[in-house]
Design a protein around this nucleic acid. Structure first.
Lengths: 208, 208
DNA sequence: CAGCCGAAATACCGTTCGGTAAAAAAATGC
DNA sequence: GCATTTTTTTACCGAACGGTATTTCGGCTG
């Protein structure tokens, strides 16, 4: 049996699995199979635990799904958002953001598309708590983008409007990826979109 | 050819339901509950028939879902596309298209959002036939839009690129509606988007 | 060592799932 | 009237579902 490597205080039998890793496995199952399409047997098998352990640690299926959404946001979502800090111009920043998104949406070791944008958004239509949570996540992303665009200072249009548009296009990229688009197809679409949204990119930066 | 019940000259017991109407009911159940989330009992109850009748007429659950996708496309999708024929300019045409879409996405007597954009697109991640069908539908829409923009003749950018962008924004509207956005929220977002995409029009200030 | 604690493992719960066999019913053709 | 055709109805199937009670096990503590 595996022994928990971290400090193992506490009196009873130690946990035989890493909860965060198990949550990641559950997330991937939901991501591919959807909420109702993911069975507890599939989940526990992927997580490497059995059902009573799942219930003790994560609660029921729906609570686990809520945790999976948070996990997605805290890992993949946060990684994409970090790309926003790299660019010096709005164009650079947005291009880098979409580039990261397109890579994540088509990663070979993940199900296609965005778990939140496809699975959770579908479920949002019939589950109010999920709906509110996902809507909130999306609104936060727009706030974050708006603030970043204001910092950059060179947005050609109202920063909040630009943030709306960027997030909206990101949603469509997620759907396309779910429908089988490859990374290069997404990148090509993104380039065409950016050329219309922000004007054609100059071949040589006239920084002189 | 289809046989409706007024022109019933078959030999056996006549159908006691209208297949098209039953298909519409099934579509609405899938639309709200998702594919796996919709049970045969819910489906048959909404359709007003029992399971053997369902199987005789529509095949199994998955085949019924495929028919529901076609039904959605043939009714709601076609109605939206018809809006494209009304405008005289690209701006008018696109605005009318989005207006129809936003109304359909938030209709009071339908589940929220777009059945194809949320439910079917989610399922596309784990069902190749569904994936191909939905991807095809989307591609056809882009072709149709491209052609219409060419006819109109006043597109400020490459017509195919514009069609891509319009369809992409439509996908994001569908997701927003699934997440609870109201029609006026969608319309406001659309107006801000169009003012950036096609230049400002003296209608609403771009700030909410 | 014994006692205890908490997690793991097994086996099981009632319900619902998607799907179907068999029989009853409604229309037509002779 | 009576057989034929096609549908509706009823009842049912084995499997899988989400969720748990119970027991076993590993490790700390006194």
């Amino acid at each position: 049996m595996k022994v928990n490597k971290s400090a193992n205080r506490g009196r009873g039998r130690p946990l035989a699995f890493d909860p965060n890793q198990a949550l990641g496995a559950a997330m991937r199952v939901f991501w591919l199979k959807g909420y109702e399409g993911a069975s507890l047997s599939e989940l526990t098998e992927a997580m490497g635990i059995n059902k009573p352990s799942l219930y003790a640690r994560f609660g029921d299926k729906r609570t686990l799904f809520l945790a999976a959404i948070e996990h997605y946001n805290a890992t993949i979502g946060a990684r994409n958002l970090k790309q926003l800090l790299d660019g010096k111009t709005v164009r650079e920043t947005v291009a880098g953001y979409f580039s990261a998104i397109n890579a994540a949406l088509t990663s070979a070791d993940s199900p296609p598309g965005c778990m939140i944008g496809s699975v959770a958004t579908d479920l949002a239509g019939r589950d109010e708590e999920i709906r509110a949570k996902v809507a909130n996540l999306l609104a936060s992303t727009e706030v974050f983008l708006t603030q970043r665009f204001k910092e950059l200072g060179d947005s050609p249009v109202n920063e909040n409007t630009l943030a709306e548009i960027v997030v909206s296009f990101g949603q469509s990229l997620a759907a396309r990826a779910r429908l089988g688009a490859t990374q290069s197809e997404l990148d090509a679409r993104t380039a065409r979109f950016l050329s219309v949204l922000l004007g054609a990119e100059e071949l040589a930066p006239p920084d002189r």
